[in-house]
Simulated assay, not measured.
Amino acid sequence: MGVAINQFNADNFHIICDELANNDAQLGTIIKTYGYPPMWSRPNTFESLVHIILEQQVSLASALSALNKIREHLQEITPARVLLLTDDEFRACYCSRQKTAYIKYLAEAIVSGQINLVALEEMPDDEVRLRLTALKGIGNWTVDVYLMFVLQRADAFPVGDLAAINALKQIKKLPASTSKEQLLAIAEAWRPYRTIATMMLWHHYLSLRVKL
């Protein structure tokens, strides 16, 4: 018998948002103020993982510019095509030497069969994390975003995501010095829907930025 996988989808997303809002007054205020968050999602493709790698520690706009440049070069972003790009071509696509190495490493892992993206869909979250973090350049934040956006797993909490953490500190009126352990303890109350709570935090963060 397979392991039960906790996912969300378009049919239950708003229901889960309402449940979280009813149980947490500050999350409820986000919905009252800004409405429901978008249900961010991406297809389970090599390109989606490349996109998440490009988003590591840079603005979303910078990452998207780099992704679009690679797409211009290749038409279609596949592992085989990426491995044909030279380091100079990657540089022309706004990719740092480090991210170039990570993307090539991922491409090689998929071409060799070390990683099978379709197979990840049937694995529990911990196993997905184990498989992906074995690859150079893929850490917990990258896996969290992959679980949330691509596999639509309902209970990931990216404690390494500055936007989500800053929004959490803001809505809960926490000091800047609040520890990672304290933040994780607060997020425990949102189980088994920490992904959707995080999307509410991002919604708060992005909506405030639009207003500025």
Rank of each mutant, 00 (worst) to 15 (best):
L206W: 10
R42W: 13
L83C: 15
S62R: 09
L184G: 10
D24L: 03
L151C: 12
G160Q: 14
P158W: 08
D144Q: 07
G113D: 15
I186Q: 01
R42I: 09
F13A: 08
V58I: 14
F13D: 03
G35F: 11
Q98K: 14
V3R: 03
E181V: 08
I115Q: 03
S177K: 15
L132T: 00
N116Q: 07
P79C: 06
P158T: 03
A92Q: 14
R81V: 04
V150E: 02
F149G: 00
I52P: 00
L201C: 00
A119F: 04
V111L: 09
E19V: 14
I165C: 01
F13S: 06
W40F: 09
T198N: 00
Y205W: 02
F157Q: 01
N68Q: 15
F13R: 00
I165T: 05
W190S: 03
I30Q: 01
E181M: 01
I138Q: 02
Q114S: 06
I110L: 05
R131E: 10
S59A: 13
T86V: 03
L106I: 13
N22E: 13
W202L: 10
T100E: 14
K173A: 15
A156R: 08
A66H: 07
I138M: 05
L20W: 08
R194H: 00
Q152E: 10
L120K: 03
E76L: 00
K172L: 14
K180V: 11
Q75N: 13
Q114K: 04
P37E: 10
R42A: 15
A164F: 02
E19T: 15
R191S: 01
A167H: 03
F157T: 01
L132V: 00
N6C: 05
D11W: 05
A164I: 06
E181C: 04
H14Q: 14
Q98M: 11
D155A: 02
R194E: 03
W190Y: 01
L60D: 10
R71P: 08
L83F: 12
K136C: 10
G35E: 11
Y34H: 08
W190E: 03
E188S: 07
L151Y: 06
